[in-house]
């Protein structure tokens, strides 16, 4: 079973992601802050990470940069998640995030899109 690490500070959103991914056959691990996310990454060696941009202490960008700089993290796919207020934000965010992470999800989630991105990054698409 593939393991997914969810780094998200809002407990409800974290629960939704965990439950939805679990229902689709993934094992999930949750972290609620940037430093905790990095710690979990080292301990649990997930196959994929979902990282929220707005995180306490260390934001999502910093977390991604940190993980991508580690040997183990180079090959771990990461999806960044962020609330956007309009299309304009989205386009600039996509550029900003595209250079860092492997994909980008805007909140509120479209669960179908989330699942297809996860599957694609894990190489499960037919």
């Amino acid at each position: 079973m593939k393991k997914i690490l969810v780094v998200e500070d809002d407990p409800v959103n974290s629960m939704i992601l965990a439950d939805f991914l679990a229902a689709n056959g993934y094992e999930t691990v949750a972290a609620s802050s940037g430093p905790e996310g990095i710690e979990r990454f080292e301990q649990d060696a997930p196959d994929l990470m979902l990282v929220d941009v707005q995180l306490p202490r260390q934001n999502g960008f910093e977390v991604v940069r940190e993980i991508k700089s580690r040997p183990a993290g180079k090959t771990t796919p990461i999806l960044l998640m962020s609330a956007v207020y309009n299309d304009r934000d989205q386009s600039s965010r996509t550029v900003q995030l595209g250079t860092l992470a492997d994909g980008y999800l805007s909140k509120p989630f479209d669960l179908v899109n989330l699942l297809s991105q996860v599957r694609q990054l894990l190489g499960e698409t037919k």
Binding site: N13, I16, F20, A23, P108, F109, L111
Partner: peptide, 16 residues
């Protein structure tokens, strides 16, 4: 926005 996202997401996963 954050709690509203929560409401929407929960409605989605329940319906799914």
């Amino acid at each position: 926005r954050t709690p509203i996202h929560g409401v929407q997401g929960l409605a989605d996963v329940i319906a799914a």
